[in-house]
Design a protein around this nucleic acid. Structure first.
Length: 486
RNA sequence: GGCGCGUUCGUCUAGCGGCCCAGGACAUCGCCCUCUCAAGGCGGAGAUCGCGGGUUCGAAUCCCGCACGCGCUACCA
């Protein structure tokens, strides 16, 4: 599908999360699409923190938004706008609506409203405010205002229908009779979401509102507000939701939903971004593994999907593996270092002193890793004196303990007598040993692998020996032999 | 209930009237490589394109119904 209408000359889009929890991957994807759009068309990507719900908004959540965005590489333009600071403007805009008779005062209390709603429900009817306060006489209204009776400001929805050309869905149309006269200003003078959003989007000169599908029913209300305020309409684009494996909206029930969960799991930001972009967007054709730069070049709203997408952790992990293998050891090492230090396996000085060795090790381990954590897990035998022996590995590869003891002793001797601790002589001597005993290399390498790493899985045995170094390798063999004898 | 939106392999998707008895990727299975595990390579299985009608010489693609799913339906955002 091609774009319905071209972007304006200087497009302005925004990401407007509310700081009421951790940064959700669904929000991130919406942010990403906005960012991609702005960068592709050379526009501005604005960040607005919608902190008007004082009860639920926290500074921690705001920080999580900044951190998450920075981690992902989604930089924003201009100053961050805090919605809470726009209160006066929101109120002015609402009052303007009142002055131009686009809205009216509603003196109904919440209790009355609830009762009406309940009554309608019991009659099996859908509730819609009956506009009773719009029929109040001017004197009546003046009297109540003078008496200080609290009131909300309600928007008077006109007849007709409200429609727009959605960049994703095409034309969407709502009969106005289905939209009730909605509140724009609470009785305490604070704005309702739709009022604040429209006021802010006008203020920030937003040209395209791209947000989740769960907002389509807000859009006709917002369009009505733009018109009543005499503002020009932005374009709208509603992107599909992200679902859990059960087809329900992705939530904590499904496991990790916050970006911070994934960064903590050793997922790379570029993999996260790549994976998320492909949930609901496609550049067309078979392109899959991409960097932010390529996605920016290829981005078009025409590639946006209408249908909700299921979050597949398996594919994310695969994607991470792809990006991992694309990174050089030098690029990867700093990230691995963070986790290595956190795990107490090494110190900064220790690693710095043997940079070449460290980079070689990272190169060796990243091949069979899907996350940074996989690398760290595998790295343990090269850093610690004590290692854990996987019980299954021991049971399988050291089945015959006396024979294994004898075998490892022979291996130890053979390795210890090596003139040069280098792969060629190592392989030559160990292969010779195997031949002399009439066994295949594997029969010898596997018990050795367990002795060195405690695992059945590792890089090639000679690479392990090299990375481990003569001293540690021999020490570990000694320990293994000791264990086997015990 | 009302309103809105959606529907191509288990999952993410390509597809914009003939190139499609539907292509790629993840997952899955098998083979190759091989000292293990990965990675990589090759191959298999897997979608009557939700269903039913049209339009058309021709439809996954256009139109209309139906079904199912999801979202919204607050003085929350």
């Amino acid at each position: 599908m091609t774009d319905i209408s071209p972007p304006p000359a200087s497009p302005r889009v925004r990401f407007a999360p509310s700081p009421t929890g951790s940064l959700h991957v669904g929000s991130v994807r919406t942010a990403l699409f906005n960012w991609l759009y702005a960068r592709h068309y050379g526009g501005a990507f604005l960040l607005r923190i919608e902190d008007t719900d004082k009860a639920r908004s926290t500074d921690d959540s705001t920080r999580a938004i900044f951190e998450g965005m920075r981690w992902l590489g989604l930089d924003w333009d201009e100053e961050v706008v805090y919605q809470g600071l726009g209160l006066e403007r929101h109120r002015r805009d609402a009052e303007h609506l009142l002055e131009t008779s686009a809205a009216y005062r509603c003196f109904c209390t919440q209790a009355e409203l609830d009762a009406m709603r309940k009554a309608a429900e019991s009659r099996k009817e859908s509730f819609k405010y009956d506009r009773r306060c719009d029929r109040l006489s001017a004197e009546d209204i003046a009297q109540r205002v003078a008496a200080g009776t609290p009131f909300t400001v309600r928007f008077r929805v006109p007849d007709g229908s409200t429609e727009w050309d959605d960049l994703v869905h095409g034309r969407i149309s709502f009969p106005n009779k289905d939209i009730e006269d909605f509140v724009v200003l609470r009785s305490d003078g604070t704005p309702i979401y739709n009022m604040a959003v429209v006021s802010d989007d006008i203020f920030q000169r937003v040209t395209l509102v791209m947000r989740g599908d769960d907002h389509v029913s807000n859009t006709p209300k917002q369009i009505l507000l733009y018109r009543a305020l005499g503002a020009s309409l932005p374009q709208f684009s509603h992107v599909p939701m992200i679902l859990g494996a059960d087809g329900k909206k992705l939530s904590k029930r499904h496991g990790a939903t916050a970006v911070s969960d994934y960064s903590a799991q050793g997922i790379l930001p570029q993999a996260m971004v790549n994976f998320l972009a492909l949930l609901g967007w496609s550049p067309g054709g078979d392109r899959e593994v991409m960097q932010l730069k390529e996605m920016t070049d290829l981005f078009s709203t025409g590639g946006l999907q209408k249908k909700a997408a299921v979050f597949d952790t398996k594919k994310l992990e695969w994607m991470n593996g792809q990006h991992l293998s694309l990174m050089s050891a030098a690029e990867l090492a700093p990230l691995v270092t963070i986790d290595l230090l956190a795990a107490g396996l090494a110190t900064q000085e220790n690693l710095g002193a043997r940079q070449d060795w460290y980079l070689a090790l990272v190169d060796l381990l990243k091949v069979r890793a899907r996350t940074i954590h996989d690398i760290v897990r595998q790295a343990v035998p090269y850093f610690r004196d004590d290692i854990e022996y996987d019980p299954d590995a021991v049971a399988k590869q050291w089945k015959d303990r006396p024979a294994t003891t004898e075998l490892l002793q022979a291996v130890r001797e053979s390795l210890a007598s090596l003139g040069h601790w280098s792969p060629e002589p190592m392989e030559a001597s160990l292969r010779a040993l195997a031949e002399q005993r009439g066994v295949t290399g594997g029969k010898l390498f596997q018990p050795l692998r367990v002795a060195l790493t405690g695992m059945t899985v590792s890089p090639g045995i000679f690479e392990v020996l090299m990375a481990m170094g003569r001293e540690r390798a021999l020490m570990r063999l000694d320990r293994a032999i000791e264990m086997l004898r015990a």
